[in-house]
Write a protein that binds this DNA or RNA. Structure first.
Lengths: 245, 245
DNA sequence: TACGACAATATGTCAGTACAAAGTCTTGAC
DNA sequence: GTCAAGACTTTGTACTGACATATTGTCGTA
């Protein structure tokens, strides 16, 4: 039997009806009120029950299908997807990750200056002589060094202060200024540490570093960050979710 | 002035109209007939010109927006997005990657047997006593060893032959059997090589391996592959594209 | 000249309807 | 009893129409 979810639609709210519906259904799944494999009330019935048109309900459901929360099969109905395939919106910073996992992240700014760098500017789609803010940070977790983070930021972020970066992750600082990265290309590799890296991270020559270079863009396609990071491989790994939807 | 793209719609075709339109527009962008920054014919005009309804055109455009090809702003119009933010559908195998880059990939199957493994079965959401096909392959590129690939496959793939795996990538073999992974969780790290890895990959103890473990699922949420790979870090890196859309 | 009001333009949201297609289940003929 | 045809359910595609809202540009007035 199909499960009826409690949904309340506020037609006077400025948030679109389909989005209200999608949010509440999404919550119902996240909270476990709807379990993977459960059959879902069909579009027509749901539309009827909530006094919404079918296209509106469809759009809400489609949003959840795109997120991997629901599975629709024609003639069969809609079911809750396996939790393992739920897509989570990625693009967090190391700082956020550590805090989420209960670590105590801290940052030391090693360098903070304006430079010109043709390679970086090209990657970010900026003029070659653009003034970039180059910063190098040492990231610690529970007082132990974990990573060295090189970053270059476009002119719009040139006035980010040293102190800001000691308090929060780069992405949080950028977000506060209205800069919102939405896509990033990352290249991940590994190599033996350089002498400087060995010193900062407390590594022996045989202990490798995990490296990641990243170019991030906002919704308009403007480059917003170039990063060149290296991590103590024995303490850190990178999770990514890849999908074809 | 808005650019008019040549589009031909075949109403007798079984492929949906919105998809025909999306494909042709996508081609126009990929081929460079539409350049980043170019203004795009507005929905109403496009619908009029092609004798399609506005919702149909909207749906096609939405598809491209989701892929990051187009950028819509209310009151302003639609423009072609910066090429850097175009999303490419990932989920390829190492074999495919090497071939695309012009390398000559080859495979030696080191192990090929049925096993039970609770850890893997759990990750794939299968019963703990499921019979899994465990394979270990040595992947070479231009006759040089590049990676050691451990994989476990669910019962549906138990009959994949040793010979199949010598000829093509695992994903290609699975695709031929109708198994289509659509999402994967990957964890990427690095460590010094084990003795066996040093031997197979021709590494010195100071030369690290890049490691990746992957759990892949099909559209229905069934686990289809568990992988535990390690690569010569000096010859290989992993590219991923991450986004928030 | 400066500034506000308004028009023009484009996308965003929502309703209602019709028919197509895929998958399941029942029914009926043999 | 078996199996195939057809009914039924549910999602997929497509159209029409209407109004809302964000942005830019223009016109007219103070």
């Amino acid at each position: 039997m199909a499960i009826q979810v409690d949904v309340s639609i506020d037609r006077s709210s400025p948030v679109p009806l389909y989005h209200q519906l999608a949010e509440q259904l999404s919550d119902a799944i996240a909270s476990g009120r709807l379990q993977p494999g459960d059959p879902f009330e069909n579009e027509i019935a749901l539309a009827e029950r909530l006094s919404l048109s079918r296209p509106t309900v469809r759009r809400a459901i489609q949003e959840l299908v795109n997120q991997g929360l629901l599975l629709r099969r024609r003639g069969l109905g809609t079911t809750i997807a396996n939790r393992k395939v739920h897509r989570r919106a990625e693009l967090t910073s190391l700082f956020d990750d550590l805090k989420r996992d209960g670590g105590r992240p801290a940052t030391t700014v090693l360098k903070h200056e304006l430079v010109q760098d043709e390679r970086v500017a090209t990657a970010l789609d900026l003029p070659a002589d653009a003034e970039l803010l180059a910063i190098v940070r040492l990231r610690l977790s529970d007082d132990r060094p974990l990573a060295i983070l090189h970053n270059w930021l476009p002119p719009a972020c040139n006035d980010i202060a040293r102190e800001d970066l000691e308090q929060a992750g780069l992405y949080a600082v950028m977000r506060d200024r209205g800069v919102r990265p939405v896509v990033a290309h990352q290249t991940i590799g590994a190599r033996p540490p350089t002498a400087a890296e060995r010193r900062h991270l407390g590594l022996k020559p045989s202990q490798p570093v995990l490296t990641m270079t990243r170019v991030a863009f906002d919704a308009m396609g403007n480059g917003v960050e170039y990063g060149d990071h290296c991590y103590r491989a024995q303490d850190y790994s990178i999770d990514v979710m890849v999908d074809k939807r």
